[in-house]
Design a protein around this nucleic acid. Sequence first.
DNA 1: GAAAATACCGATTGGTTCTATCGGAATTTC
DNA 2: GAAATTCCGATAGAACCAATCGGTATTTTC
Lengths: 141, 141
Amino acid sequence: MRLSTKGKYGVQAMFELAMHGKNGPLSLKAIAERQGLSEHYLEQLAAPLRKAGLVHSVRGAQGGYQLARAANQITVGEVLRVLEGPIEFAEVDSAKPDCPVQSVWSRVTASMCDVLDSTTLADLVEAELARNTSGTLFFEI
Amino acid sequence: MRLSTKGKYGVQAMFELAMHGKNGPLSLKAIAERQGLSEHYLEQLAAPLRKAGLVHSVRGAQGGYQLARAANQITVGEVLRVLEGPIEFAEVDSAKPDCPVQSVWSRVTASMCDVLDSTTLADLVEAELARNTSGTLFFEI
DNA sequence: GAAAATACCGATTGGTTCTATCGGAATTTC
DNA sequence: GAAATTCCGATAGAACCAATCGGTATTTTC
């Protein structure tokens, strides 16, 4: 019932890319350092994200990754589906679709998707910027 | 991110107990047959449910299990926590609690708990009875 | 043109968890 | 006493996770 590190790290990496914005590509090494992750492991996450068209890669020295779309056009749910497959609280048993237990699973899934599909990378960037601003003001007044 | 069969079967079994109500104890064999599960596997789920005080057991022939409380006093979330541990969409990294990504995980978790903690076994029984009633009417009119 | 940086690729591995299965002991009913 | 049932502990195969490793291809920089 818990997200694996694949989805977790993947979203964190996408958040870093969104924060970096259009300042050229950001390397996996840089992301790995900022988030304290293994660079080699991140490679495994970058591959599906690129194949799914969520990021563009730039090879060679000074290369790295950039978001393939505007940050407000990429939701957290979309990233997770690429890395983890369908978002589903429990596999729905097609043999008894009318069982009230199944409908609980469906409702939980829907409520998870509500949050994940309505949150974009831009929302995360905005929250982070707001946090830094208020923090800075707090100490500089 | 997906519920394991432990939680899934466990809730289905608790639902059967709730449906059975106060007509004496219901054996694991009966539950296994109705739900198409392995009886031996159900035993492993029954043990923690009993230790957590959610069911009472009756040993010996004609024995089985009963809910330890009224069905409207047992939520689906409670059953899942006994069988699967804390309900949490992703482990929150205590090193960076203010990261916007962490707050997404918290919001998803909260929204899952909203559904799971507000749904009782009695709600499931009610839904099942309503379904049978309407189904019967549909064919008997 | 050489060297460094980086993305890209595939294999493997150790660990954990899942999903049971098995055999038997204790308890109660009939 | 026989049958039904809970109870207990061990085990085992499978799948998945998380990560590591070694190497190749591409691009920039010097």
